[in-house]
Amino acid sequence: MSTTEPSIFTRIIEREIPASIVAENERLIAFNDIAPKAPVHILVVPKTPEYANVAELAAGNPALLAELVSFAQTIADEHGGEFRLVFNTGEKAGQTIFHVHAHILIGNLGEDPRADFQ
């Protein structure tokens, strides 16, 4: 049995911490980020804490990853269509909560999203 504390996401899933929930199904929950980096910034989180990052999720449950991406697309469609879907994997990449989650970002981010790839 693990002695680690549940992540903030697990506590939101269990309704111990309030969140502005946007959508939910049996396996996923989506809610507004409390520190948005875009006009629309929604997190999509699997309800299982089993996977720390997207690489673990892809290896361990690719069907859940596919469902997460489809769920994100549906949410994005309801909020304007075009979007970024971002997974931070590892502390050096900006991951601060080690319960896999995706960021849906819609709208002006104050930067050229292609700049990193030029």
Rank of each mutant, 00 (worst) to 15 (best):
E24P: 00
T96K: 15
A59F: 13
K92G: 14
A30E: 09
T48C: 15
A23N: 01
N53Y: 12
G107M: 12
P62K: 10
F9M: 00
A72H: 09
Q73S: 11
Q73I: 12
I8R: 03
I13E: 03
S20C: 00
V69C: 08
H103T: 07
I75D: 09
T89I: 11
A72M: 14
I13N: 04
K47T: 12
E5D: 06
K37I: 10
A66V: 08
A19E: 02
A115G: 04
A66T: 10
G80H: 05
V86G: 01
D33M: 03
A35R: 05
A52E: 15
D112R: 09
N32F: 04
A63W: 07
R114L: 14
S7E: 02
P39G: 11
I104H: 07
R27S: 05
F71S: 11
A76I: 07
I42V: 15
I29D: 02
S70F: 08
T48N: 10
E50S: 15
E24H: 03
E24I: 02
L105P: 12
S7C: 00
N53I: 14
E78R: 13
V69I: 13
T89N: 14
K47E: 01
T10K: 03
F98H: 15
E50F: 03
I17D: 04
T89V: 13
E50I: 07
I106Q: 11
H79M: 08
L43Q: 00
L68D: 08
T10G: 00
A52H: 14
M1E: 04
E82A: 10
L57Q: 08
K47G: 07
G94T: 08
L109E: 15
L68Y: 09
V44C: 05
I21T: 05
K92F: 02
F83H: 15
E50L: 13
R11V: 04
I106H: 05
S70I: 09
E78L: 10
N61D: 15
E67Q: 10
T4P: 03
P62N: 12
R84C: 04
V54I: 15
F9H: 00
A66W: 09
L64Y: 13
H101A: 09
I34T: 04
L28M: 07
I106F: 08
V45P: 08
E14P: 03
T96N: 13
E50R: 14
I8M: 00
L105Q: 11
A66H: 12
A35G: 06
G110D: 09
H103W: 12
V40P: 00
H41A: 07
T4N: 02
N32I: 00
V86Y: 00
K92R: 13
L109R: 11
Q95E: 13
H101I: 12
D116C: 02
G110Y: 06
V54P: 09
R15S: 00
E111K: 06
V54R: 07
L28N: 02
S20G: 01
R114V: 07
I13A: 02
Q73N: 14
Q118M: 07
H101W: 13
L28W: 01
G94W: 10
L105R: 10
K92V: 08
E82G: 08
T10L: 00
A30C: 07
A102T: 07
F83K: 09
N25T: 04
E16S: 04
L109Q: 13
A35Y: 04
P113R: 10
E5K: 01
N25C: 02
E78S: 15
V44K: 06
N88C: 03
F9W: 02
T89H: 06
L57Y: 13
H101M: 12
Q95W: 09
L65K: 10
L65H: 09
E50C: 06
F87M: 01
